[in-house]
């Protein structure tokens, strides 16, 4: 019979030869292999002393972006929460008052925005769903913690600080943006 792929192997139930039944040649061969591995380069990365390099579009912890003037972009539309397969996102929306234009870009904003990082699977669907380019995943890793409650990230830890802006240009290359809006 002709095989479909070139990966199939012919199996046989033939009796082992005497040489194979003694086991010793195979054992010595195997021990030689393991001995060679002692001198091989180690694969261990000693995190956190060393860090392994991550791509620019690594899907790590989230950031809620501000616009160029420093106002929050999120309009609490809830699309990210709907898109989230892990149901990790919750929010409470509020109306922007007079005089808060510098804080919030849209007339409606999220007064509470929480992501449960224990539920999140870092799939990036929230980033894809957001019509306001407000939420992004970043290169940063999620730090470990002793308390479960500390894994619920609120706006205090999600919104990007005005003095240290997070660069997401690598995630927003023209092709990505085009693709996103042609889909809809």
């Amino acid at each position: 019979m002709k095989s479909l792929t070139n990966r199939s192997l012919q199996v046989s139930n033939r009796k082992m030869t005497l040489m194979e039944r003694i086991y010793l040649p195979a054992i010595i061969g195997g021990m030689f292999i393991t001995f060679k591995h002692i001198f091989k380069k180690k694969a261990t990365v000693k995190w956190p002393d060393e860090e392994r390099s991550r791509s620019e579009v690594y899907r790590g912890r989230h950031v809620l972006k501000r616009d160029e003037k420093g106002a929050e972009r999120c309009t609490a539309c809830g699309l990210c929460a709907v898109a989230c397969p892990a149901e990790a996102i919750t929010m409470v929306s509020s109306e922007r008052k007079k005089g808060e234009e510098a804080l919030y870009r849209e007339e409606k904003y999220a007064s509470v925005y929480e992501i449960n990082m224990l539920r999140c699977i870092f799939c990036g669907l929230c980033e894809e769903a957001c019509p306001k380019e407000a939420i992004f995943l970043t290169k940063e890793l999620m730090p470990a913690n002793y308390e479960r409650s500390n894994f619920i990230y609120g706006k205090d830890r999600l919104v990007e600080p005005t003095d240290s802006r997070v660069d997401v240009s690598k995630r927003q290359e023209p092709a990505v943006v085009m693709n996103k809006y042609n889909d809809k």
Partner: peptide, 15 residues
């Protein structure tokens, strides 16, 4: 016990 873990590690390309 220490040696065992070390030997296991270096034979599996670990530390």
């Amino acid at each position: 016990t220490y040696l065992e873990r070390k030997v296991a590690a270096v034979m599996q390309d670990r530390i």
